[in-house]
C-alpha cells in the first residue's frame, strides 16, 4: 500500500508541475464596459472593443449592472476574427432606463503571455429611451476580484 501511495504522490507531483507551467501561459480576465451618459437616459448603445487578436481571445460577453441591461449584449460574429467585437443592447423600459455612469457589459477574455494587453473601446452609436441619438463616452477597465468566488468582484480603475 505504501508503494502505491508513493507512486501516486509522484504522479500527483508531476501533474501539479505540469499545471503550473501551463498556468503561466494563459490567464482569464474580465473587463468592465462603462458608459457615461450625463443627464441622458440610456436606451440603446453600440460599442466596439479592440484587442490584440494574437494574444487575446474573447470567451464570453456578460450583461451589465442595471436590470435593464442585465441580459448579455449581442455581438456581431463577423467582427470577431479581426481583433474587435461589436456589442449592442437596448431597452424599452422607460421607468428604469439608467443614466450617468453605467456598467453596461463585461467581457471575459483569455490572455496568452504575461503582458497586460492593450484593450480599447469606442462608441459607435447610442440613443436615449425616446430613440433620440445621444453622445456618450465609453471606458474599459479590468474587473478585479475581491475574494474567491463567483459573485464578489470589484473594479480597479
Amino acid at each position: 500500500m505504501r508503494g502505491i501511495l508513493v507512486i501516486a504522490l509522484v504522479l500527483a507531483a508531476g501533474t501539479l508541475s505540469a499545471a503550473e507551467n501551463t498556468e503561466a501561459k494563459t490567464v482569464f480576465k474580465a473587463w468592465d464596459v462603462r458608459v457615461e451618459t450625463g443627464d441622458e437616459t440610456l436606451g440603446a448603445y453600440q460599442v466596439e472593443i479592440f484587442y490584440p487578436k494574437t494574444t487575446v481571445k474573447i470567451v464570453g460577453v456578460e450583461g451589465g449592472e442595471p436590470e435593464t441591461f442585465r441580459d448579455a449584449p449581442r455581438y456581431d460574429p463577423k467582427g470577431l476574427k479581426g481583433g474587435r467585437i461589436i456589442l449592442a443592447a437596448f431597452t424599452t423600459d422607460k421607468k428604469s432606463a439608467p443614466k450617468g455612469t453605467v456598467r453596461v457589459a463585461r467581457i471575459h477574455t483569455s490572455i496568452e503571455g504575461k503582458d497586460t494587453p492593450e484593450i480599447s473601446a469606442k462608441v459607435t452609436t447610442a440613443g436615449n429611451i425616446d430613440g433620440k441619438k445621444i453622445t456618450i463616452t465609453v471606458r474599459l477597465s479590468e474587473t478585479k476580484r475581491e475574494k474567491k468566488g463567483n459573485k464578489n468582484e470589484k473594479t480597479e480603475e
Binding site: 464570453g60 450583461g63 455581438y75 470577431l80
Partner: peptide, 28 residues
C-alpha cells in the same frame, strides 16, 4: 450561461480552439 443573476453570452469559435480554451478554464 446564467450563474445566479449573471448572464454570459457564449462566443462562437473554431472547435479545436474553443475546446483548448475550455479545457484550460476547467483546469484553472
Amino acid at each position: 450561461m446564467t450563474i445566479g443573476t449573471r448572464r454570459i453570452r457564449a462566443i462562437i469559435r473554431e472547435r479545436e480552439e474553443a475546446k483548448k480554451i475550455y479545457e484550460e478554464a476547467r483546469r484553472q
